[in-house]
Design a protein around this nucleic acid. Structure first.
Length: 255
DNA sequence: ATGGCTTGAGTGTCAAGA
């Protein structure tokens, strides 16, 4: 089974690229973040014409998440149970035998910001919720934009980024707590090129100079980890005209 | 140098992203 995650930074703008990518890679499931459109404007017909079902939770202008799948998703739920949040950042569903969680973590803006405090409380709520989800699903994968670069090797210039949002110790600690629930960072199960990133700033030719961060991740529970045969970042869509600033992450699991 | 691009909103120019 092929599963993938992609922050598209506006599904309206990126729809043709998403359709191209689906046709080329034929994933069993694709988790999307930052749709930036309300549900009434979700391009359901175009997705279905491409051979995919869609479960989505959107809002105007900001956030918004979706799970596209070749077979219909079931048991669809939105949000983090017990965490009241108007921001549409989580959608979960069963696809085949696997429970998928599509997540878009808050950016946090800067460590001094109220948005940073919201990010940390959101991550804490995610952690305690996923602990309960792990107990209820034998095969659980959490895919998405975590807005956290877990280690210095996930940062193009660790010195320049030290203490900043996306790499600060409290954020990395929150990511570590997720892993310690019993997940693997599937990308690190395999040998990977140095300076592998999933996001590059639009400004200053960030992609061409590979000034990036690895902030999009596929986390797998133990059962899925043992059957994972690959995880890679697809750089190709980042070279498109009008690209998203994020690249897709693709995982291969036996499920 | 706290900028730089891109998007959505809305039709000026700003908020937000990362």
């Amino acid at each position: 089974m092929r599963i993938a995650s992609w922050n598209v930074n506006s599904l309206k703008v990126r729809l043709p690229q998403v359709l191209d990518w689906l046709a080329k890679h034929q994933p069993d499931a694709l988790c999307l973040q930052e749709l930036k459109l309300e549900d009434a404007k979700f391009p359901q017909a175009a997705i279905e014409a491409a051979g995919y079902f869609a479960a989505y939770s959107g809002q105007k202008t900001y956030n918004g998440v979706a799970i596209l799948s070749r077979t219909p998703a079931t048991n669809i739920t939105c949000g983090i149970a017990g965490f009241d949040d108007p921001q549409r950042r989580i959608i979960s569903a069963d696809v085949g035998s696997v429970r998928l969680v599509c997540a878009y973590a808050p950016n946090g803006q800067s460590p001094e910001s109220d948005k940073y405090r919201y990010k940390l409380s959101w991550l804490a709520a995610l952690c305690s919720w996923l602990e309960r989800e792990l107990a209820q699903h034998s095969q659980l994968a959490v895919l998405g934009d975590y807005n956290i670069a877990p280690e210095d090797r996930d940062v193009h210039d660790p010195k320049a980024w030290e203490g900043k949002v996306l790499v600060s110790p409290p954020e990395r600690e929150a990511f570590r707590r997720l892993i310690e629930l019993g997940f693997s960072d599937s990308f690190r199960l395999f040998e990977q090129p140095e300076k592998s990133f999933t996001w590059w700033d639009y400004r200053m030719n960030g992609f061409k100079r590979n000034l990036g961060l690895r902030i999009d991740h596929i986390l797998l529970n133990a059962a899925l980890t043992s059957g994972c045969t690959g995880c890679c970042i697809d750089l190709e869509p980042r070279r498109n005209e009008r690209p998203s600033d994020h690249a897709p992450v693709v995982g291969e699991i036996s499920a």
